[in-house]
Design a protein around this nucleic acid. Structure first.
Length: 607
DNA sequence: AGGTCCGTTGCCAAG
DNA sequence: CCTTGGCAACGGACC
């Protein structure tokens, strides 16, 4: 009784609650929560990310004082259903590797729950309708789930929270996917997300320690009130058949995550010497990084545990690398992008994004699909894209190289198109980090030195002069002599014949001449930046469109008539709104310039 | 205001 | 093999 009065008094004097809610409702809610605490609550632990038992504050809370805990995951067909029109196996939004990673993670979560006498309850459907229905069916008192900052999750969770609260269900959604709460960081920084890493590091402080795993997990009731629970499907169950491609060598799950963490941290010298930019992007049998990113993305591994274990290793050593290049620095980059993503309007778009440079990119499906499908004719770029499709993973610097190539380096295609490809195919694709890095690489935000362009020829050669990486992922080039491996179009025809790889037949000619293309890209970037400056940082859409037309006239694109050239481009949608001010068919006045895409490289380079 | 320094990961030639 | 400096030259932070 004393407790009840105190709770009531608290609510009574916190004016905000009282002003919006009828008194009777308030009393009822307070009564119910006290009543339940005495009777032992029933909690629903809703898993989305955070697919783990360790350092899971939502799960811990769900177990505290509960008679029954219902661990639920909702399988959404939107994520899982095969899309036959997609360019590679998978659903509309996720490649088959990421789907597999999720299924493996769920299997492992179920197994780990079973070790505690519980189990994972799997349901089909849209969480927005499934979860509220379960609250009623199972007479749930408390709904627990991990806080998620993505816009899609934010709106979904807000809706469900509203429904839950309306029916008197307590909602507990702690921050445990990130080291820091982006809300706090933004507040500490004066209301906006820090735009430089240094500024970010100045405000964050020290992250909280992980919480303990629950000592016991009360099992769900035997009687599920006719709710249909489904078994964890296999890929075949979902309709993915005849998958004969090379698979991701990185299996999902908390157990594998913790094993990998132990593995990575066991080599103390490696951990203390780690400097991200020095890694070898062509190392694929033994990657140059931890490959813990997919486990962090799905929450099979807690970033707070990773951070704590990392500090333990550092404390054993007199000297160790520091952010931004160290392993700790990598965890902080993750936080940096989560904060920027949470604090920036339209973070995943160019238009309406206040931190994004407005650049007249091309909306060219031909160039995009050549890049996506690994037929640009630049073996390093194509091999990396094949690794992405087959494994769902590539080294950070390989991502840089292909992202630079698609956008400001060579093809000048919209970064959002490349972002979509990564988002679908990477097993670690993460909304904030993926968008943040595409903004970075396209020199749209955070990074602006657009003259620094990765060479599709020399960059990988530094690490892998023999072209082992290229030959593995592009077997068509496996017999190409190494001196031509990054530029096979320069091999004499006799050499091509001997290698069973005729350029233009068995493997494409390059779709652009890098030397010409990157010069043109820099010119385009320069004009876009100049326009931005002129317009006080925020040029109008019409001005950007106008610049687009001007640049298209300055650098007309003429397609080769035959060969492996990509399909002709579709007009950019935004051009449709424009009334025909300039015709794309018109040849520009003056002398005909050498074109970006009608490049015919020399057949032989004598050595 | 304007100058200076710096920024996770460029390229190339020279030493 | 490695490192170093020239190249060309951006925005943002800070004084």
């Amino acid at each position: 009784m004393v407790v009840e009065t105190r709770l009531f008094a608290q609510s009574f004097f916190s004016g905000k609650l009282l002003s919006n809610q009828p008194l009777a409702k308030l009393v009822r809610r307070q009564y119910r929560s006290v009543h339940c605490a005495m009777q032992q609550k029933k909690s629903l632990m809703w898993f989305r990310k955070g697919l783990r038992l360790h350092d899971n504050p939502a799960l811990l809370r769900a177990c505290q004082g509960a008679s029954h805990v219902y661990p639920v995951f909702v399988l959404d067909p939107w994520f899982l259903a095969p899309d036959p029109t997609a360019p590679s196996p998978g659903s509309k939004v996720a490649g088959v590797n990421r789907i597999r990673f999720l299924l493996q993670s769920l299997e492992n979560l179920d197994a780990n729950l079973r070790q505690h006498g519980s189990r994972l309850l799997l349901l089909h459907g849209n969480p927005a309708t499934v979860i509220p229905a379960l609250l009623t069916k199972w007479q749930i008192n408390e709904l627990c789930y991990e806080f998620d900052t993505e816009p899609y999750a934010q709106s979904r969770d807000a809706e469900i929270k509203k429904l839950a609260s309306k029916s008197g269900v307590e909602v507990f959604s702690p921050v445990s996917h990130t080291l820091f709460n982006p809300v706090d960081t933004i507040q500490k920084n004066g209301g906006t997300a820090p735009l430089t890493y240094q500024a970010f590091c100045k405000v964050i402080g020290t992250p909280p320690a992980p919480v303990a795993a629950p000592s016991q997990i009360p099992s769900p009731s035997e009687d599920l009130n006719n709710v249909e629970i489904v078994a964890i499907p296999t890929l075949e169950d979902l309709g993915y058949i005849n998958l004969d491609e090379e698979f991701s060598p990185h299996p999902g799950g908390e157990t594998e995550a913790l094993r990998r963490l132990d593995d990575s941290l066991a080599d103390q010298k490696w951990v203390c010497d780690f400097e991200k930019p020095k890694g070898d992007p062509t190392a694929f049998m033994k990657p140059a990084t931890t490959v813990l990113s997919p486990y962090l993305k799905f929450g099979c591994l807690s970033c707070r545990l990773f951070y704590q274990r990392l500090q333990a290793v550092y404390s054993q050593s007199k000297k160790y690398s520091k952010p931004p290049v160290s392993l700790e620095g990598q965890l902080l980059w993750r936080e940096f992008f989560y904060t920027a993503g949470y604090g920036t309007q339209n973070f995943d778009r160019m238009q309406g994004n206040p931190i994004c440079k407005q650049i007249p990119w091309k909306d060219d499906d031909g160039l995009l699909s050549a890049w996506r499908d690994g037929r640009t004719g630049h073996p390093w770029i194509d091999a990396a894209m094949v690794q992405l499709r087959k494994w769902g993973w590539m080294h950070h610097l390989a991502r840089h190289a292909v992202a630079c190539y698609l956008t400001r380096g060579d093809l000048f295609v919209y970064w959002e198109r490349g972002r979509d490809v990564f988002d679908r195919l990477l097993i670690d694709s993460d909304w904030a980090i993926n968008n943040g890095n595409w903004l970075w690489l396209s020199a749209s935000a955070f990074f602006h030195q657009y003259h620094r362009i990765y060479s599709p020829v020399t960059f990988a050669k530094k690490y892998d002069p023999d072209g082992r990486y290229v030959k593995h992922f592009l077997p068509v080039l496996k017999d190409m002599p190494k001196q031509y491996i990054y530029e096979p179009w320069t091999a004499p025809l006799a050499v091509q014949k001997k290698a069973n790889c005729i350029i233009g037949v068995d493997y494409p000619r390059p779709i652009v001449d890098h030397a010409i293309a990157n010069k043109e890209c820099r010119e385009r970037m320069g004009q876009a930046y100049a326009l931005s400056k002129e317009a006080g940082g925020h040029p109008k859409q019409e001005q950007v469109d106008e610049l687009h037309d001007r640049l298209e006239a300055q650098f007309p694109v003429v397609r080769p008539e035959s060969g492996n050239a990509p399909a002709p481009p579709k007009r950019a949608p935004r051009k449709a709104v424009k009334k025909g001010a300039s015709s794309p068919k018109e040849e520009p006045s003056g002398k005909r310039q050498r074109k970006l895409t009608d490049y015919k490289p020399a057949q032989a380079k004598k050595k």
